[in-house]
Design a protein around this nucleic acid. Structure first.
Length: 278
DNA sequence: TTCCAGGAGGGGG
DNA sequence: CCCCCTCATGGA
């Protein structure tokens, strides 16, 4: 995709391939705020502000290289969308979510975030993660705190996570922190998708859906299809009535192949905002 | 008041 | 293997 990278900014010129509203609001990421027309994004300990100009979007940040990778700017999404458009079910979701991109997010942050996401809603997930940041992170901008380090998270107990609002997921967090380190997660990069999924599923608080989300939004694997309540509803509406999520996953994977992850995100975003009206 | 949210762990059959 | 139950919390 066409973009210009400067010392403290990135300009992104192809708006049909890059829409910050849809990229951030589509449910793949929880570390952002909307401040008027400006989006503030704060993955890990990094910070950026995104603003729309007439012919481009500008990402203002001290670390353009980090965010070029974070926003997956090297990838051509025109090609992905063109391939997805061959499926008639994708017509509306592609039009609705124009400019969605799958982010490259930190593996450890994804693990913690999506364990919290289980049986939860996005607004409250953001709230809980914000509480954890504010208590254990470093201040990186006005009223914005970094994602805590592994060591910081290990230094607190179950009661702390409950106070942050994590509810019964508090014990999952404490246990998973004893099972895994950020370094080990990084080493998993080399695994094929079958082995990677198996490794993630062995972690406490990580089931099929959370494992798929970590694989998609962290490891950028296209050959997964996270099935949550919205995808399940979508599937029952457009395909057939099925309550077995593993079966739904396999059927959708068979259709979309290596583009499954991308298809899923467009379908999820569309379903979550439109399906209840249908 | 009950139902639901980007589900997962645990027990029993 | 599958089925059933339970797990906090806040908004609708």
């Amino acid at each position: 995709m066409k973009f210009e990278i400067g010392k403290d900014y990135i300009k992104v010129f192809e708006k049909q391939q890059f829409n910050p509203v849809h990229i951030l609001e589509c449910g793949q990421v929880f570390c952002y705020n909307k401040d008027g027309e400006i989006y503030k994004v704060f993955p890990l300990d990094q910070y950026a502000e995104i603003e729309e100009k007439e012919d481009y979007y500008i990402i203002n940040t001290k670390n353009p290289c980090f965010f070029a990778n974070f926003f997956d700017l090297e990838r051509n999404y025109d090609e992905i969308k063109s391939n997805l458009s061959k499926f008639s079910i994708m017509t509306e979701p592609l039009a609705f979510g124009t400019g969605i991109r799958i982010l490259n997010q930190d593996l450890f942050e994804m693990l913690i975030s999506f364990i919290i996401s289980a049986n939860n809603n996005i607004k409250r997930i953001k709230l809980i993660l914000g509480n954890i940041r504010r208590n254990l992170g470093e201040k990186i901008a006005e009223n914005i705190y970094s994602f805590p380090t592994y060591e910081k998270l290990c230094s607190v107990d179950e009661t702390f996570f409950k106070q942050m609002g994590a509810g019964y997921r508090a014990q999952y967090l404490v246990k998973v922190l004893k099972q895994i380190t950020p370094k080990k997660l990084l080493e998993y990069q080399n695994l094929d998708s079958i082995s990677l999924r198996k490794a993630l599923l062995s972690l406490y608080g990580v089931g099929p859906k959370v494992a798929d989300c970590i694989m998609l939004f962290g490891y950028h694997r296209g050959d997964v299809f996270p099935v949550d309540t919205w995808i399940e509803q979508m599937y029952c509406h457009y395909y057939e009535k099925l309550d077995n999520r593993e079966q739904i996953r396999n059927n959708l994977l068979k259709q979309f192949g290596d583009l499954s992850g991308y298809a899923q995100q467009y379908l999820f975003y569309f379903s979550r905002t439109n399906l209840k009206k249908l």
